[in-house]
């Protein structure tokens, strides 16, 4: 079967899979950014309980594999009475996994905001919350955005694993088509190209644009 005929027959299924991948990507990214911010700030907290919780979360999720976490959340959590459907379990695992790496980025970026900025905010008698929100975080964001670009590519790649708990994403469709047609090069090749397009022509340019916008807002262009 020539490739165009293959694409004409199965193109819709790849498209449907790509949409599910995009949904998983966006939801997982939201989870990752939220927990990264919480755990990153938590690790800098003066309260030992908060700091300890953040450290334990970060070390557990960075120390084990995404696949192990996914299976654990999907197959073992129900034993504790927490039943998640596969779609939720999918983006939650990916988000929590990447969030642990993101937390280190947040922490590193906050710590690399120059000391003078902290002191200036203190001199203006800003409250700690206001100082963090108005002075430190915006500058930390500019510092860590380039690394987040890489991390979001990792997140996109991570979403491919949700196919293993049968979420019908791009990877899942490729596997199904491969199983029914045995056209492995076409099925997996198409999926590889679609992932590449998503990463290279959507995620990366978006993050670059965000970096530029951020630099402009901070008057650093």
């Amino acid at each position: 079967m020539p490739i165009w005929e293959f694409l004409a027959t199965y193109g819709w299924r790849f498209l449907g899979g790509a949409v599910v991948t995009a949904e998983q990507f966006i939801l997982a990214a939201l989870v990752a950014i939220t927990v990264a911010l919480l755990a990153g700030l938590g690790k800098l907290s003066g309260n030992w309980l908060i700091r300890g919780t953040a450290v334990v979360y970060i070390e557990i999720f960075r120390g084990t594999s995404l696949l192990v976490q996914l299976y654990w959340i999907f197959f073992v959590l129900p034993l504790f009475g927490i039943n998640l459907d596969k779609f939720t379990a999918g983006f939650l695992s990916v988000g929590l996994n990447i969030g642990a790496y993101g937390a280190e980025l947040v922490r590193g970026a906050i710590r690399s905001v120059p000391k003078g900025q902290w002191e200036a905010a203190y001199a203006l008698s800003m409250s700690p919350t206001k100082r963090m929100r108005r002075i430190i975080l915006p500058q930390a964001l500019a510092i860590m955005l380039p690394s987040w670009g890489n991390l979001l590519i990792e997140l996109l790649k991570g979403t491919a694993l949700v196919s293993l708990i049968s979420v019908a994403d791009l990877m899942f469709e490729a596997k199904q088509i491969n199983a029914s047609t045995f056209l492995s090069a076409e099925a997996f090749g198409t999926a590889l190209v679609v992932y590449y397009i998503l990463a290279r022509f959507l995620v990366t340019p978006f993050m670059r644009g965000l970096e530029r916008a951020m630099a402009r807002r901070l008057g650093r262009t």
Binding site: G158, M171, S184, F188, G189, Y196
Partner: peptide
Amino acid sequence: EFIRSTPLVLQIFFVFYVGPQ
């Protein structure tokens, strides 16, 4: 760039299944 921006699990399937074809 291509290898870095596509999922490893898909690459594993690709290498494993495309050979026999």
